[in-house]
Design a protein around this nucleic acid. Sequence first.
DNA 1: ATAAAATTTAAACGCTTGTTTAAAATTAGT
DNA 2: ACTAATTTTAAACAAGCGTTTAAATTTTAT
Lengths: 206, 206
Amino acid sequence: MSKELSTEEKIREAAKNVFIAKGFDGCTSREIAKASGMNVALVNYYFCSKKQLFKLVFEATMEDFMQSTVEVFKKDLSLESKMRIFIEREYEFLILHPDIPRFILSELSRGDKFEFDHAAILEKIADTGVLEELLDAQEKGIIRKIDLTNVMLMIMSNCQYPFMAKSLMKYLNGLTEEEYQERLTLQKQYVTEMLIGYLFIPKTNN
Amino acid sequence: MSKELSTEEKIREAAKNVFIAKGFDGCTSREIAKASGMNVALVNYYFCSKKQLFKLVFEATMEDFMQSTVEVFKKDLSLESKMRIFIEREYEFLILHPDIPRFILSELSRGDKFEFDHAAILEKIADTGVLEELLDAQEKGIIRKIDLTNVMLMIMSNCQYPFMAKSLMKYLNGLTEEEYQERLTLQKQYVTEMLIGYLFIPKTNN
DNA sequence: ATAAAATTTAAACGCTTGTTTAAAATTAGT
DNA sequence: ACTAATTTTAAACAAGCGTTTAAATTTTAT
């Protein structure tokens, strides 16, 4: 156990956990303070306000989430391999942080709460060259000519939703946490097959 | 315009809109009262507490959502037709009520807020006989032998996520509401093809 | 060792929250 | 028409909220 965290870092870490678990509206400054072992005044001493602390946490979480998965497209591999590895990474990440997609989409959908800087995230995606690679593959007839928004939606739907719907699915199907984890591992394999099978145009043998 | 709503109904309707838009934690009793044209005391006069009003709204919303789509499986059609119509209905419903999946999954994920009665929903699904039909189709080699939890996940992922991620996708791709609606219509067609193509085993010609 | 700076604390600030009260206004029953 | 029940209102309640204050403590620098 590394106890060598500064007060500021302790608060930031606690805030991240609490915000992701309960949302901005679902928690209090005092709750964050208590979770970090500090008191309320220190939260505002280091971060000025609950809102600003949230903004910091949200943007960092969003960047982490994107970064950890999208960077596979920088590698020198076939598009299909990259796609497979991307899905693999996405599931790996989400098994460790299953609440992040719901957190991001929930907070983002009530966007009046703060204006977040999406330029940084757009840049990280653009930097990987994934968009050009996909367009190029469409020109070459490797993958279907589908608007990239739809391609992204397909992949993200099949990666993120299974984690967002965990509570509901466990309810509906009467599964334990372990049983649901098993379904998730299977789901990863199924959606990989399904997505690759649908998006990639089979090579004709002649 | 039908103005002939009772006070109780006005509050219930307003509460539904406000809860779905902002979540339980994201709104106040006074906000709901104002949205219904009434005052705070009336909310508790008819519904005892914010929590109980929420419980009512949540369970009704959940039942509506399930009911409107799953009942297609009662019809006398081929499984493939039912699946196609199911997806069609789901998208139709979600175009009208795009915030409901996020609402349900968000509120459900912090389940300590109240215990909801999922038996009624389970029963509605069971009543359609969809589960038996799917298992039967698996036995007959019509669709892949995949755990039904995973089948449900696949379908729900591709129907609900595109609506849950609207804010994010509009951001990332710089789309207007109209442009995103167009993508959603295309998405419906793509995911129908993809899901049917993956889940159903092609008939061999011999 | 001492003074200055940074950190931590307990207490308080106005304000909003969910809920309740008690009186006023309306409706229903006879 | 009169009474009783129902509905609506304005006002108040304690509790909790985000934030601020000012004093106490610790750290840093000379």
